[in-house]
Amino acid sequence: MNAPWVRRALPALVLVLLAAAPFLLNGFRLRLLTEVLIFGLLAASLDLLVGYTGLTSLGHALGFGVSAYATGIVATRLIANASLTLLAGVAAAVLVSLVTGALAVRARGVYFLMLTLAFGQLAFSLADTWTPVTGGSNGLSLPVFQLVPGAEGGLLSGVVGFYYYTLVAFVLGYAALRRVVSSPFGLALVGIRENEARMRAVGYAVQGYKLAAYCTAGALAGYAGALYAQQQRFVSPGLAGFETSALALVMVIIGGRGTLVGPVLGAGVVLLLRDELSTRFEEWQLVLGVVFIAIVYFLPRGLAAALRQRRAVA
């Protein structure tokens, strides 16, 4: 059942399905799928920290939010070009990750968790109060983005066009993460998760590796944040806040940490759940909370592991 060709064919099949999605789904669902891909990137980048390096971050929305705002500010003040704003967003996220990461990787265990939480919240406060630049709690509304400078309207204004743009961006981002985790650097991160003392003993500068992981994850989060700003054409302080960080963490845990693909699945489950619930009840957070609790007890290793187990049994 678990033959090599299945493992080879599965990604191709998924890719074909994703490419065919605009023909299978209505506009509303396609928008949701676009969002799933974007949050899938965010969750997968968080998995690099949580699942591979063993650093639990509660402030991963920092890079996401900062990049979304950088995208928004460049788009409203300079140029609403998709790739330029994406670049600006990622650059801003890396810069912020470098500064906060230098502090955070010094902390151990639960202190890392608290520091990252605080940094995310700091970005939230900044976005909320620095009204002249960020629009304060009203946020910023953004114009339609162009793929090529000078082109009017065009590809990215439609739901289908934007979906394909996101799909390409997702495949590139996901493939990059895949390469990173299967590289010697990725193995070193797993080593840090497994046994930090041993890593130091064989000569690894552990803090440097942690910082590199933190910044890589931050860059990818920024990549997702820029895409999200371009899709929503609206940014608000909540993007950098605790809710977003918690949501990303939940996606990682639900999907299965240390698998990359799991968190993307997790993003699908969480966003679908949120959409389905929020249209039916106003109190969807109540159900979400119950789901979180249930997962801790009944699905402790995530969906990816559960699926793999079923396959192994079958």
Binding site: L58, L249, G289, F292
Partner: peptide, 18 residues
């Protein structure tokens, strides 16, 4: 680590606040 308890207590906070 602290992942599960973070999720559990976060879930509880959602439930209580809601």
């Amino acid at each position: 680590g602290h992942l599960d308890q973070a999720l559990l207590t976060l879930g509880a906070s959602y439930v209580l606040a809601e």
